[in-house]
Amino acid sequence: MPLDSATRPLNSLGFAKPEAETRVLVAMSGGVDSSVVAAQLAEEGYDVVGVTLQLYDHGAALAKKGACCAGRDIHDARRVAESVGFPHYVLDYENAFREAVIEEFADSYLAGATPVPCIRCNERVKFRDLLETARDLDADCMATGHYIRRVMGAQGPELHCAADPVRDQSYFLFSTTREQLDYLRFPLGGLPDKAATRALAAKYGLPVADKPDSQDICFVPEGNYASVIEKLRPGAAEPGEIVHVDGRILGVHDGVIHYTIGQRRGLGIGGLSEPLFVVRLDVDARRVIVGPKEMLSTRIVPVREVNWLGDAPLTARAEWEVLVKVRSTRPPRAAILRPLSDTQAEVELLTPEDGVSPGQACVVYEPGGTRVLGGGWIWRGA
């Protein structure tokens, strides 16, 4: 007698039905991580559909190395699908990507911020537009190759850091909403390290098993932000003055877009008795303000566009004792989170941090655990 959905055990993706009747859309970048996810789910018997997004000019992308979603990556994703034996589609998201990610990146950078476009891409393209495409294809869920864990809690799915802290991508996924989290799956989050992923790729005989990890933002070759901004906003690299916080003019620069908060090298103002750092960018006056390192220390961090994933509402308490990351490469630090509304808050760092910059994310974690409680965008000067 066949089991009904009330008595059938859940499959590995959390559905009370056979794997062959569970359709999962896998977002495939062409890299080893998402390829392993697709191959693993296919081997388990799921109805896998692979989708790769073309996010910017395909012809220009073919000449690039070291970035995701380029022409070579689309080709690699297709090869994986063919070798494993599941359907694969390429969707043209160029216009959506430009409007939702690239334009804001350019405007934010020109305003003196240090944007993180990968977060916006996850939030506005992959986990919004692509997720809707998955629903249109009658997929039961969407799986990605991100290193993060989805854990069922007392009040539904929770977002947790990956088992491997080196690969953890929670900083880039803080804006994932509850509704999105209900639909998303992250099969790699529990793996001990990247070597385990590559071992699986070799096991499945994937053509990308030895492919290097991408390093750059996909539309920023060689990490050269300024050259991209100049193409997007001609005339943006206007020269101006490098000014000490005490008012002294120390030199000239060839565009504020070439500088970031906390920068020390490449200022072109050698011969001074003290090391100086970029402490502020005055875009309107085209001035790069420099000063001693202690001026970079920040204790109070204002955040907005807060996405909250805690069990209780953000405003249920006047203060939350939390851990926060203000940069993806830094470990979480103890802080007090004070809600100002459902979407704005003030974060007090118990130990001041250097180089806190508008445009970066401030991601919130539970103390003593792995749960991601959400986060927001740092929105004015440190």
Rank of each mutant, 00 (worst) to 15 (best):
V116H: 00
P117A: 12
P117G: 03
C118M: 11
I119W: 00
C121Y: 07
C121W: 03
R124T: 03
R124M: 07
R124C: 00
K126V: 09
K126M: 14
K126T: 07
F127C: 05
R128L: 14
R128N: 06
L130W: 07
L131T: 01
E132P: 00
E132V: 02
T133M: 07
T133D: 04
T133G: 00
L137F: 11
L137C: 09
D138L: 13
D138Y: 12
D138Q: 14
D138H: 15
A139E: 10
A139T: 07
D140T: 03
C141T: 06
M142H: 06
M142F: 10
M142Q: 13
A143I: 03
G145H: 00
G145A: 06
H146Y: 13
H146D: 10
I148Q: 00
R150T: 03
R150N: 02
R150D: 02
R150L: 04
V151L: 01
V151G: 01
M152L: 06
M152D: 08
M152T: 02
M152P: 00
M152A: 08
G153M: 12
G153P: 03
A154S: 13
A154V: 14
A154P: 04
A154L: 15
Q155F: 06
G156W: 02
G156A: 03
E158K: 08
E158G: 00
E158T: 04
E158W: 06
L159C: 10
C161Q: 13
A162M: 06
A163G: 06
D164R: 11
D164H: 10
D164V: 08
D164K: 14
P165Q: 08
P165G: 07
P165L: 14
V166L: 07
R167E: 09
R167Y: 01
D168L: 11
Q169H: 05
Q169D: 04
S170M: 10
Y171H: 13
Y171E: 04
F174M: 15
F174A: 12
T177G: 05
T177F: 04
T177R: 14
R178P: 00
R178A: 03
E179H: 01
E179G: 00
Q180S: 13
L181P: 01
D182K: 14
Y183T: 08
R185E: 02
F186M: 07
F186C: 01
F186Y: 14
F186N: 02
G189C: 04
G189D: 02
G190A: 15
G190F: 09
G190P: 01
P192E: 14
P192D: 15
P192N: 15
P192Y: 11
A195K: 14
A195L: 07
A195I: 00
A195D: 08
A195G: 14
A196T: 13
T197N: 09
T197Y: 09
T197I: 15
R198N: 11
R198I: 11
A199G: 09
L200W: 11
L200Q: 12
L200K: 13
A201T: 08
A201L: 08
A201G: 13
A201S: 11
A201P: 01
A201I: 07
A201E: 06
A202N: 12
